[in-house]
Design a protein around this nucleic acid. Structure first.
Lengths: 118, 118
DNA sequence: GTGTTCCGTTACGCTTGCGAAATAACCCGA
DNA sequence: TCGGGTTATTTCGCAAGCGTAACGGAACAC
């Protein structure tokens, strides 16, 4: 069963993560771009344009554009699928891993504080 | 001390929340707009344009625009400050509370699943 | 009362992202 | 091999958001 305090803690974490995301002036990612990042880095490969579009319920061109932007930032990479050359696989980069781990640190810090375990 | 599994769980929650945010077709909020929502609803009043801009390190016009959009959606409201009539206070609405509690449910559900406590 | 400072908004030109439709490359079955 | 289905991308016109700078109104010092 879920109670109010865990609910508050969950939103507080979300707030902290989102605030961090907004405050970063350099890689300023939109919600869609960030969602794609998290899916690619947290869920099992392979990740295709079609799959990402379906999962997030957005259009394929929207995914293509997000990949362009994220690719330009070197946060992830397109890798042609050798088996089916119509498809591309979206794969991780070192820079992207570092980026996400920084975000994770901030969220975790917030969670820690919210639990009163300083 | 923080370990890898809690870090993963934190990012998974963030992913779930962000996916939910992206999938909503109606009120499609940007990161900035959502961050403002969460600050207004989770932190103690009063909330001013200048304060929000400083906290999120964005320009005041950006906050004004976000308030316009969020106000049009009835997710929050401007309330003139009687004491200092140059300032405005950003206050909560019923619709905004409902909206955020829905998001909270999704995050919490994800956290539950990640902890293996289905 | 007057000049100054502070707060939020508006005006401006610009960049980015959007969906729908068209396009290009590819797979596969008949 | 050829034609229909699939995958990702490009093109198009358009809407929303951005930061800088200018503005109007309110507070405040003197």
């Amino acid at each position: 069963m879920q109670n109010k305090s865990t609910s508050q803690a969950a939103l507080a974490m979300f707030k902290q993560a989102l605030s961090e995301l907004v405050q970063r002036q350099g890689p300023d990612l939109s919600s869609r771009q960030m969602a794609i990042m998290l899916i690619v880095y947290l869920e099992e490969p392979p990740h295709t344009v079609r799959g990402l579009a379906a999962q997030l319920k957005i259009s394929k061109p929207a995914v293509t554009r997000a990949l362009d932007t994220l690719g330009k930032m070197d946060l992830l990479k397109r890798k042609p699928d050798e088996a089916d050359r119509r498809s591309i696989n979206v794969v991780r980069t070192v820079k992207g891993s570092v980026y996400l781990s920084e975000i994770a640190d901030v969220i975790e810090q917030a969670a820690w504080n919210n639990l009163g375990q300083s």
